[in-house]
Each structure stands twice: as C-alpha cells, then as structure tokens.
Amino acid sequence: MSNRSRALARRETMAGYAFLLPSLIFFVGFVIYPMIQCVYTSFFDSTMGREDIFVGFKNYVDLAKDEIFWGALKNTVVIVIVSVPVTCIFSLWVSSVIYNMKGPACSAFRCIFYLPVVTGSVAVAVVWKWMFNNYYGIFNYVGKGVGLLDKNINWLGDERFALGCIILILLTTSVGQPIVLYVSALNNVDQSLVEAAQVDGANKFQCFWKIKWPQIMPTTLYVLVITTINSFQCFALIQLLTSGGPNHSTDTIMYYIYYSAFKLYKYGYGNAMGVVLAVIIAVLSAVQFKLAKTD
C-alpha cells in the first residue's frame, strides 16, 4: 500500500471515530460508568447523609438470607418461564398465519399487535387496572354475566391471581415486536426450497421444520434473548399496578431493587441485587446463544 493510500485510510478511520465519539461518550458516561459504579457500591453500606462504609461481601451474604429477595427471584423466574415460551410460540404462530396475507391485511394485523408496544406504560396500566377493578371491571362483569363467577374478585389484590394478571398484561405488551420480526424473517425464507420440498411430497409441517425454521433461527435467538431480558426486568407494571403486593406476592427483582434503593435508601444492597440480576441474565443469554449455535 502506498503512502497516499495509507494516509487516506488513516483519515477515513479518524473521521469514522470522530462521528462515533458523541455516542461513545454517552455510552461510557451513562452505561459503562454506572455499571462499574454499581459493582463498586455493592461492596459498601451506602445510603444518604453519610460516608459509604466498606462491608465487603456483606450485602451479598444478606441477600442469601433475605426471604423477600428469594420470593422476588421466584416470582421473576415464574414470569420468565411463562412469558418467554408463550411469547415466542404465539408470535411465531401469528406470524405464520399473517405473513402470506396481502399487504393491507398483513400491515393491519402487525399494527394491531404492535400498538401496545408503542403505547405508554402508564396508559396501558390504567386501562388494565380498570379492566381488573374488583367493583366495575370488565372481567368481573363478563365473568358474572356468563356464570363463571359468583362474586366479584379483587384480581390485583388477591395473592392467588395478582401475579397471573401481571403475566397476562406483560404478554400483551411483549408479542408486538416478535411478530413484526418473524413476519420479516418468514418473508425472507428462500421459497424455492419450500417449493422443491412440496414437489417432493413434504407437508406444511415438514416444510416449516426442515426449511423455514433453520432460516429464521437467528430471529428466534434474538427474540428469545430480548424477551428473557425484558421479562427479568419487569418493573413498570409492578410499580403502577400492585407495588409488589399483596404481601410481596408480585415482587420482582427489579421492583425490589427499586424499593431497597429508593424507598429504604439502601443503595449498596440494591446494587448488590443489580449485580446478581446482571449475572443471571448474562448466564441465561450465553446458554441461549450456545443452544442456538448447537442447533
């Protein structure tokens, strides 16, 4: 390579880094630095109005003994176990039905399913809170009208139903993006392979499992990882609808972090939970990547 070519390549590289610099500064200042500070503070007894006190691994030891934390972890795991597979399977099924529709019909369905995603969390919570209201909510009204319920149920105030209600709401706000992604992925499947398989006598399920499924695997991996992370980070619905109640039955790790740090002012303890949550998400994401690569 000539000196002129090297100089040109160097200028282009410098120009590229110059364009990246604002985003890089923002990323380091608002993502990397808070992450490092979170890990650092998790080793301190940190609160407002006094100097931080170094306590080593005490916050993590206290977490292991905290029954509320274990209850929040259990609720979070239940949300993930239910919402992730249901979201992926339902999204793939809907996408398989609508992706062959003509343009306006397919666009209309994608818009309908994606609408809860772009709607504000507060608006969504207000609507669902009205639907679950134990006096005039639509679920009690319909349930009593068709004879399924004998009396009104306090859906969000009963330990038996509260977490299930949260999962139902989370599902309605989680399927929009996967449906849009799956529709695009299915439209990019090589149709010549599908037609060749049909000529050889393959049925619809065989065409999907042997041809379409391997080609949409990258999309499936992305949906699995993003849905898992979003499920682990479920907070807004809890904060707006139940505040962790009744009797901590809807506590999640994210909500308990918020409660410990900003209600009890135990910043070090909350950060320790944040580190544990980050490790859990990282391990599960790595496992999902490994399994998808193996397949």
Rank of each mutant, 00 (worst) to 15 (best):
F43K: 04
C38Q: 06
I53H: 08
S42P: 04
F44H: 04
G56A: 10
P34A: 05
I32S: 02
F57I: 14
I36S: 06
T47I: 00
A64D: 01
T41G: 03
M48W: 14
A64L: 15
V61K: 14
D62S: 10
M48C: 03
F44W: 08
D45W: 06
T47F: 02
F43N: 00
V61I: 14
D52T: 12
D52R: 13
T41V: 14
F54V: 10
M35C: 08
G56W: 08
F57Q: 11
S42N: 03
L63T: 05
D45L: 13
V55R: 03
F44M: 04
T41Y: 07
T41W: 04
M48L: 15
Y40M: 07
Y40H: 12
Y33T: 10
S46G: 01
I53R: 11
K58Q: 15
I36V: 15
S42Q: 00
Y60F: 14
V61S: 14
I53F: 05
I36C: 07
F54C: 12
F57H: 09
G56Q: 07
D62K: 11
Y60M: 05
D62Y: 09
G56E: 10
V39R: 00
D45I: 05
F43D: 04
S46L: 08
Y40A: 09
M35Q: 07
S42A: 11
C38L: 14
G49Y: 04
I53E: 08
F57P: 04
L63D: 00
G49H: 05
I36L: 13
L63A: 06
Y40G: 03
C38S: 14
I32P: 01
D52H: 13
N59C: 09
P34G: 03
I53K: 10
Y40P: 00
S46N: 09
E51I: 04
R50N: 06
R50Y: 13
D62M: 10
I53A: 09
N59T: 07
I53S: 05
N59G: 01
V39H: 00
P34S: 02
N59Q: 07
A64C: 10
Y60V: 01
G56P: 06
D52P: 05
C38M: 15
M48G: 03
V55W: 02
